[in-house]
Design a protein around this nucleic acid. Structure first.
Lengths: 151, 151
DNA sequence: AATTTATATTTGTATGTACAAATGTTACTT
DNA sequence: AAGTAACATTTGTACATACAAATATAAATT
């Protein structure tokens, strides 16, 4: 559906406004759908994101600022996200011995197992949308978004 | 910058995953930039969105469910957003006499004035990004997003 | 007319976001 | 070595999101 119909806009919009609303709305659709997948596992999208980053470390611990750095929303509060994951025993946390300012966060086997369970569901989610586009259109969409957001 | 560089991903990603991360990240960039504009006026993005919908009513009051319907994030809590706007005197709120279940929300002159001040800044914000694309690319981006999100 | 169902909104709770200030540790400067 | 600056993380506060339950009113059913 076109963005004007979704927002029931009465007046015609500039294309530049339409792009913004389209990006924002598409993000909402993606996130809502993704939350549905995560819901039975009682984990939030941001918590999932942290776990995914930790698995990507392949056994090496990640500091808070490394996690922060690799997250989409740079202003998320990593401390509190890790707190929640710690309660569920998906991660461990200890002070770095070489530099006592830093914290070393590691994913546990329980965390890895959760991600393994989620992997096929996440892939299906990704394809649910991208299947609407041809391979070429998918590449184009990525290129346009990357070009668009350069400030 | 490409999404893999931004997220410092070590492994190559499927294009379908790349699209999702690109949409999410682009939304973050747009929102962050927009919040910068609103900050001096002590209004949040969602509050702005409600005001914009109310102005679009052209003098007619809007019920809570009408506002909800026209918002991007369908799960936002309209009651509490309107509460905040009421405190700042940007809107009025009264029970609908024909149907006492409904609430009639109207933008005040103060609210309209605020939007008028913001209008040029919002337009500049929209163009800040869209200027990176040709007119044709802009149209294409909208079409691809609309095609992409059909479930 | 009383009961049930549907509609519109509000409230409560947990989580997440945005931002500033506070805390603790290390590195640098004099 | 003491003081200052820089770095890494935590904490506090206000706002927003997600979702379920509660409340109030209107419409439909019996």
């Amino acid at each position: 559906m076109k963005i004007e119909e979704i927002l029931k806009s009465s007046v015609p919009m500039d294309n530049s406004k339409k792009i913004i609303l389209n990006v924002l709305y598409t993000q909402n659709v993606i996130i809502e759908n993704f939350n549905e997948i995560l819901k039975p596992y009682e984990i939030s999208g941001e918590q999932y994101n942290v776990l995914r980053i930790l698995r990507g470390q392949k056994g090496n611990p990640a500091n808070m600022c490394v996690i922060q750095d690799r997250m989409l929303a740079k202003t998320s509060n990593t401390t509190r996200l890790v707190d929640k994951l710690l309660l569920k025993e998906y991660v461990t946390r200890k002070v770095c011995p070489e530099n006592r300012r830093k914290i070393e966060v590691l994913i546990t086997q329980k965390g890895i197992d959760l991600l393994s369970t989620l992997d096929p569901k996440v892939s299906a989610h990704e394809e649910l949308f991208s299947k609407n586009l041809t391979a070429n259109e998918g590449l184009q969409l990525n290129q346009l978004l990357e070009k668009y957001r350069n400030q």
